[in-house]
């Protein structure tokens, strides 16, 4: 029970033990635990960040949706406008076409009329000549009376 040299051995043991504990137990373990704490903190902050980003993304999605709606509205109204324009245009074009067709028909008719008139004139001239031949009982020289016939034809 008295103090003796055991004390010295115990002191050496104790000091060595402190050194060993620091080396194999405390050092690696506390480093590991610090690392883990850091990882947990990182994970938590990452989760927080993720949540924040999700909120932002939701906000952005809402904005995009709103934009899209507005644009769709625009497109729709434009399309309506354009369709009415097209209809108007078609109407105008149709009217023009009708006018043109009408004009062409008229021209045709007039041409036909003039051609018929020409025909008629020729026939009348021939008729007049043959009629005059019969009346006079002699041949009329068409060439000699051409001038007179022409004026006659023009009067018809």
């Amino acid at each position: 029970m008295s103090i003796n040299a055991t004390l010295i051995i115990q002191i050496i043991t104790f000091v060595l033990l402190i050194w060993f504990v620091n080396k194999v137990l405390w050092g690696p373990m506390s480093k590991l635990m610090e690392d883990r704490q850091k990882r947990i903190a990182d994970g938590l902050s990452a989760a927080e960040k993720g949540k924040h980003e999700l909120e932002l993304a939701e906000q952005r999605a809402k904005d995009v949706l709103k934009d899209a709606k507005v644009q769709a509205q625009n497109v729709l109204s434009q399309a309506e406008k354009r369709s009415t324009e097209i209809v108007e245009d078609a109407k105008v074009k149709a009217a023009e076409e009708a006018e043109r067709i009408k004009a062409a028909a008229q021209a045709d008719v007039e041409q036909e009329i003039s051609r018929a008139r020409e025909q008629l004139r020729k026939e009348v001239a021939a008729l007049v000549v043959s009629g005059a031949e019969k009346i006079l009982n002699k041949e009329v020289d068409a060439k000699a009376h051409n001038e007179m016939l022409d004026t006659l034809v023009k009067q018809i």
């Binding site: 040299a5 051995i9 115990q10 043991t13």
Partner: peptide
């Protein structure tokens, strides 16, 4: 005298220290 060594104390405490390590 002073140069007495308590073998049991020394050995047991050293063994327990070795157990920790």
């Amino acid at each position: 005298g002073f140069w007495t060594f308590h073998l049991d104390t020394i050995v047991v405490s050293a063994l327990l220290g070795a157990l920790m390590i």
